[in-house]
């Protein structure tokens, strides 16, 4: 503890020189290895550096090994698998597979069910992302500027669906969506609407999943919007109000431009998540009825289940490519005007 004060410049030790004396030891200013005390020779500093490197690697090794085995290797392996005809029975003899080039990719792209799944996924993303974002932004605006009391309770309640298990949620929602007798159609009945057979009707199954996904995910986006809204200074709003801007104009011309980075972030993360939509159809509809809720991720999983590992890998890379493209486009569109 004695030498401590010298380096940190803390004024506690009366014997040590004040912070101003620090420049007197020029090696204290050097970026690395300075902490070993000025008395060391340059050779001593070299070993300190080596020691630092060694320590860093000791700290890094456990992560790196696990990461190599369970993330990096599978990524590479998946790329290799996608150009082979690997099937489940090849598991034990990995050298018996044949390299078939891009056959898996062309096979996937010409498969009518895969195309249907791609269209369904697009539907889910194009409707689901705006719906989720609008709900989230509305809730965030209301909680940020509209009300002053009970904020925490509303925030907590809106966030609750996010933390719950999709499997458990599905049990409840399948029940709520029942026709007849489900809670949702009962409530719709009160206002004179006869609700559809949500999960049994190919036209309504996807909307049902989209509503459920929006319900489950808008809380995350809301929290991030709330954080973004903190950065919008109240004075700007007041100034605009004095200038005669109404609430909508203030939102449009003050809040929205300042929220653009947050918007980009939320949109990108939500889109990435929704492009991979898998759990909702898996637990709610198994892709049915009539493949109306078959998504690309779910179809990929099915191919994996059938043992078509090569084909499934190719499909997963197609998803990855689409995600990369969509993300790039969103960055372009939203960044341009900032």
């Amino acid at each position: 503890m004695t030498a401590h004060t010298g380096t940190t410049g803390s004024p506690t030790g009366p014997v040590t020189p004040p912070p101003a004396a620090a420049p007197g030891r020029p090696d204290d200013r050097s970026p690395r290895g300075a902490g070993d005390g000025g008395s060391r020779t340059s050779r001593g500093r070299g070993t300190a550096r080596a020691r630092e490197g060694r320590a860093a690697w000791i700290l890094a090794i456990p992560f790196c090994l696990l990461f190599l085995a369970f993330t990096a290797w599978p990524v590479v392996q998946s790329l290799f698998m996608s150009i082979t005809d690997t099937r489940a029975r090849d598991l034990r003899k990995p050298f018996s597979v044949n390299i078939i080039g891009f056959d898996n990719f062309t096979k996937a792209l010409s498969d009518p069910i895969f195309r249907k799944a791609a269209a369904n996924t697009a539907y889910f993303v194009l409707v689901g992302v705006p719906l989720t974002l609008v709900l989230a932004l509305a809730a965030a605006l209301a909680l940020d500027k509209g009300i002053t009391r009970f904020r925490a309770i509303f925030r907590l309640g809106f966030y609750m669906p996010v933390i719950t298990s999709i499997v458990a949620v599905a049990v409840v929602w399948r029940f709520l969506l029942q026709d007849p007798g489900g809670l949702i159609n009962t409530v719709l009945g009160w206002v004179g609407i006869s609700g559809p057979n949500w999960l049994g009707d190919p036209d309504w199954s996807m909307p049902a999943l989209i509503i459920m996904a929006a319900w489950r995910n808008f809380g995350t986006a809301m929290i991030i919007f709330l954080a973004g809204l903190q950065a919008v200074p109240a004075e700007l709003h007041e100034a605009a109000a004095i200038d005669g801007a109404n609430a909508w104009k203030r939102f449009r011309h003050v809040t929205l431009p300042l929220l653009r980075p947050t918007m980009l972030f939320v949109m990108v993360t939500t889109s990435i998540g929704y492009l991979q939509v898998f759990e909702e159809p898996f637990v709610m509809t198994k892709g049915g009825p009539l493949n109306s809720t078959m998504t690309v991720s779910y179809y990929t999983y099915q191919q994996f289940g059938f043992g078509n590992y090569g084909l499934a890998s190719a499909m997963s890379y197609l998803i990855f490519v689409v995600i990369a493209i969509v993300t790039a486009i969103q960055f372009r569109l939203l960044r341009e005007r900032t």
Binding site: F67, A69, F70, T71, A72, W73, P74, V75, Q77, S78, M81, L91, R92, I272, L275, Q276, F278, S297, T300, Y301, F304, Y309, A312, S313, S316, Y317, I319, F320, I323, A324, T327
Partner: peptide, 24 residues
């Protein structure tokens, strides 16, 4: 860079090889 790159790769990509690895 390696770690950050994989942050963007969807889980479905590693799923099949991961299963093969764990099975083996």
């Amino acid at each position: 860079v390696a770690v950050m790159t994989t942050l963007m790769i969807p889980g479905v990509v590693t799923f099949v090889p991961l299963f093969v690895l764990v099975a083996n």
